[in-house]
Design a protein around this nucleic acid. Structure first.
Lengths: 110, 110
DNA sequence: GTCTTGTATTCCTTGACAGGTATATATCCA
DNA sequence: TGGATATATACCTGTCAAGGAATACAAGAC
C-alpha cells in the first residue's frame, strides 16, 4: 500500500496536472502554462506525483516529458471497491431513508 | 465538486475510521479504541469527515453514532473513471513497454 | 441537585506543505 | 566556447493540519 498516493492526489493542482497528462504526455513548461503555475512549482508537483508512482518521466534533450501512469490509481480504486458496492446498491440511501422515518409510531426521527 | 473530500481522505487514520464505519455504525469512544486514537482526535477526524459529507451523525443520548456515507465517494469514483478505462485496457502498460524498446535500431531506451 | 459517562471544543506546539524567488544543472545551438 | 532554453533544486515564508492535554458541554444515573 503506497502511502504517498492519497496525499499526492489531495492537492487540486496535482489532479489538474494528472488530468492534462491523461490526455497527452507533456513537458514541464507546457504543463506549467496549462495549469497556470510557475515552472518551479510545476516541477515540484511533478516530483510528488512521480514519488507516488502516478507519473513517469522520459528525457528528451533538455526537456522532461511526463506521462500519466493510470495503473497507479488502481490502488485507490481497490480501496474504493467495497464502498462502491454499497452506494451502487443504494444501501446508504436506504439507510438514510430509514433514519428519516421512525421505526415505531410515536418515535421521533433524528 | 466537493473540495473537502480529497484532503479528508488523504489522512490514513480517517480512512481507517471510514473502513470501520463501512462495516458498522459506531460511536466515538468505540471508534477511538478501534483505531487507537484519543477521543478528542477521533472527534476531530470525524468532524472533518462530516464536513466532507463522508459520514453522518445520529445522536443516541450522550453518544453520537457515526455511519459511513458511501455515496459521497461517488465523486472520487467519477474522477477516477477516465483513468480506469486506461488502466483496464492496459494502455499505460503498453506505453511503458514501448518506452522500453527503441523506436529505431540504434536508439537507446531511457 | 451531584456524579458519571460520552463527546466536542479550545489552546498549544510542531511539522509538513505550497507558493515565490533565485540559482544550479543540463542540453542544445551558433 | 558562449549563450539560450528547459528543468530541478535550495531557501524563505506563511499557512494549515495533526496530536496532546485540559476543559466545556450534554445527557443519563443516583
Amino acid at each position: 500500500m503506497n502511502e504517498l498516493i492519497w496525499p499526492a492526489l489531495a492537492e487540486p493542482n496535482r489532479r489538474r496536472i494528472l488530468d492534462v497528462l491523461r490526455v497527452q504526455p507533456c513537458a514541464v513548461g507546457e504543463l506549467a502554462r496549462y495549469v497556470g503555475l510557475g515552472q518551479p512549482q510545476t516541477s515540484k508537483h511533478l516530483g510528488v506525483l512521480r514519488a507516488a508512482g502516478l507519473v513517469s518521466v522520459h528525457p528528451d534533450a533538455q526537456r522532461r516529458v511526463y506521462r500519466s501512469r493510470p495503473s497507479a490509481l488502481a490502488e485507490i480504486d481497490s480501496w474504493l471497491a467495497p464502498y462502491r458496492e454499497l452506494w451502487t446498491t443504494s444501501l446508504d440511501a436506504l439507510e438514510m431513508h430509514l433514519d428519516q422515518k421512525p421505526l415505531l409510531p410515536g418515535e421521533e426521527p433524528k
